[in-house]
Amino acid sequence: MDVTSITAIVTGGCSGLGLATATALRQAGANVALFDINEAAGAECVSELGSDNTLFCKVDVRDEAQVKQAIEQVTQRFGNLRLCINCAGIAPASRILNRESQPTPLDGFQNAIDINLVGSFNVARLAAQAMAVQAPLEPTGERGLIINTASIAGYEGQIGQCAYAASKGGIISMTLPMARDLSALGIRVNTIAPGVMGTPMLLAMPDHVQDALSANVPFPKRLGLPEEFAALAVHMATNSYMNGETVRLDGALRMAAK
């Protein structure tokens, strides 16, 4: 897929991995729709990325009606939808039992699953619906690509990460069947599973915490860059034979228990 002049949706597109990906796509010539709940950040991002080719939609990824309406806005504005990248998510931490042996609140687990897993699936299925009615691209025959964001915690969840690991493991597990479901329509599905990335949330931590995280990465011994995530997403778009894959982006890191 040639990303020049295509239209892409990026959820969580106003910060972190999502913003880096949206920026890379705009630099490559794509139209970008930012799905996010932060209206102030949305207005700023549209200004920075260029209002002619960037659209902000306030969207809760769990809400079917909001996502449908936003996708309609996108297709009306830009005329096509070829790429959907799901970066919206949360990273809660809570042990199953606290020091007093009281169980963690159930709603925290449910919220992580709803936003990270159900939200990704919700946006993916509705984006696929919009992609399916488009003419296939030549010469590949593809109609679109969905990229979901998992985490290496989906393989090696640490202490306190039951909810987060379950949500990201679910994304990993649905990658292949989703790709198989949509293959007849020429829609590909891939997933990126990043390790410790230098997002604003992590960079706000003290230097000694960042240094400790970096020290566990075999090579290169540093935090991953959001721009490296974005570069992989763009590569997945341009490499039409990459389908049904989950790619770790982690410097060979395998997470310890804590």
Rank of each mutant, 00 (worst) to 15 (best):
A231Q: 10
L232P: 05
L232F: 07
A231H: 10
N243K: 08
P220T: 09
L225N: 14
R222L: 07
A237F: 04
G224T: 06
Y241T: 05
A215D: 14
V217H: 09
L225F: 14
A237Y: 00
K221Q: 15
G224S: 11
G244R: 03
E245C: 01
L225C: 10
N243S: 07
V234P: 01
E245T: 01
L232R: 07
A230F: 08
N216K: 15
V217E: 05
Y241L: 08
V234F: 00
H235I: 04
A231T: 03
G244A: 00
T246D: 04
L223C: 12
L223E: 15
F229K: 00
T238N: 14
S240H: 11
G244W: 07
V234R: 01
T238F: 03
G224K: 08
L223A: 13
N243M: 04
M236K: 05
F219H: 15
E228G: 10
T238P: 04
L225Q: 11
T238E: 12
V247W: 09
N243L: 05
H235Y: 12
A237E: 02
N243C: 12
M242N: 04
R248T: 11
A231I: 01
P220H: 14
P218D: 07
M242D: 06
K221H: 15
M242C: 13
V234N: 00
L225E: 15
K221D: 11
G224E: 09
N239W: 03
P220A: 13
L223G: 09
N243R: 05
V247C: 07
A230W: 06
M236I: 09
K221N: 12
M236E: 02
T246G: 02
E245A: 06
L232D: 02
P218F: 10
H235S: 12
T238V: 15
V247A: 09
V217L: 12
N243W: 02
V217Q: 10
R248H: 10
P218T: 14
T238H: 02
A231E: 11
Y241S: 09
F219G: 05
L232G: 03
E245S: 05
Y241H: 14
N216E: 08
H235F: 09
A215S: 13
P226E: 10
M236F: 13
A233K: 03
N239L: 02
P218S: 11
A233M: 08
T246C: 14
T246Y: 01
R222G: 10
N239R: 03
R248S: 11
P226I: 13
G224N: 08
A230H: 01
F219A: 10
V217Y: 09
M242E: 07
